Simulated assay, not measured.
Amino acid sequence: MTSTIARNRLDAHTFTGPGPELRASFAENGFVLLDGALDAAELEAIRTEAVRFCRGELGEIIGAEDVARSDTSGLSDEDVLRQFLCIHQPHKVSDVAMRLLRHPKIVSVMTDVIGPNVKSMQSMLFVKSEGRPGQPWHQDEFFIPTRDRSLTAAWIALDDATVENGCLWVLPGSHKRGVLYPDRKQDDPRFDCSIEAYDFPYHDEDAVPVEIPAGTAIIFNGYLLHRSLQNSGKHGFRRALTNHYMSAESLLPWAALPADTHIGKHDYRDIVLVAGEDPYAYKGTEDIARPHSRPDKDGGCDRW
């Protein structure tokens, strides 16, 4: 799957669990690989759940109304999956996705690199079938702002992720400055409707392709520059489950600011506490986000 040179380059970033070496590597490079984050049974469970999502068995998916109105009974599971690029917030309606959001092996690493109190606010189930686009260079903190730079992603490969099928590429160390680079709209056919970060002091030649086997997770900092390219169409799906975490001590100024809320106390409360205590538990939690489909350019970027 991976060249010897590339594999050796990634071996230095690969760990089986938390510890001082993992923390040091994460701090220096902005990412680590967690070997065997999911076992074979867990992989099969979330792949099966993806089909149920795409067949509408778990309820409405906003942005996929055309699919919901169609009869998928005559379609194979693969053809049903191919109608989607990514489903946001699967944990809101799926017990399987919620269990993986709280997965002990992943949460143990999150408490190691974030701190003892950790909450989550987002999950994403990427399908990315043959020919479907990737995402341009971006930083997750642009989309999910925290108050303490604690945003951390767990990107879990549900299929072997390779250069050919559109694996992640990362710019090691690009998180260190802790700044968000300029952004712009882009019309590159290799990418979906996402914005593109630019004018940063790195080059494409500095990037590392993160080719990993199914079940491995890449844990990365919210300021790390990363992207993915098109699935070349030669080897089927490149499915992945991505969950986002942050410190429970941080407010989450996400979504629109309510009219009666001071900007300093803006706090999105549709969260799941996965470890420790929530200092803001007195605020309660809300059920705001619903599962929705991410459009690629063919789906119309005006829907995004």
Rank of each mutant, 00 (worst) to 15 (best):
V93C: 09
S94R: 06
S94W: 04
S94V: 07
D95K: 12
D95F: 00
A97S: 15
L101K: 09
L101R: 08
P104I: 11
P104E: 15
K105Q: 14
K105V: 10
I106R: 06
S108H: 08
V109F: 05
M110A: 01
M110Q: 09
T111E: 15
T111D: 01
D112G: 09
I114D: 01
P116L: 12
N117W: 00
K119E: 07
K119A: 11
M121R: 00
M121H: 11
L125K: 04
K128H: 07
K128T: 11
S129F: 10
E130T: 03
E130M: 02
G131Y: 01
G131T: 06
R132Y: 11
R132K: 15
P136D: 08
P136A: 13
W137F: 12
Q139L: 08
Q139D: 10
F142V: 12
F143T: 14
P145V: 02
P145K: 05
R147N: 00
R147A: 04
D148G: 12
S150Y: 05
S150P: 05
A153H: 03
A154D: 04
A154N: 06
W155A: 03
A157T: 07
L158M: 07
L158V: 06
D159K: 03
D159L: 02
D160R: 11
D160W: 07
A161R: 03
A161H: 04
E164Q: 14
E164Y: 00
N165I: 12
N165W: 08
C167D: 08
C167S: 09
W169A: 02
V170A: 10
V170I: 11
P172T: 02
G173K: 06
S174T: 04
K176C: 00
G178L: 06
L180E: 03
L180G: 06
Q186G: 13
D188A: 10
D188G: 10
P189C: 06
C193D: 01
C193Y: 01
S194Y: 11
S194H: 14
E196F: 00
E196C: 10
Y198I: 05
Y202G: 05
H203G: 09
H203C: 00
H203D: 13
D204L: 12
D204H: 13
E205D: 15
E205R: 14
D206F: 01
I212S: 03
P213C: 09
A214V: 04
G215R: 03
T216H: 12
A217W: 02
I218S: 09
I219A: 05
Y223V: 05
Y223M: 11
L224Y: 04
L225E: 11
H226K: 09
R227L: 14
R227C: 15
S228K: 07
Q230E: 10
N231Y: 02
S232L: 01
G233C: 05
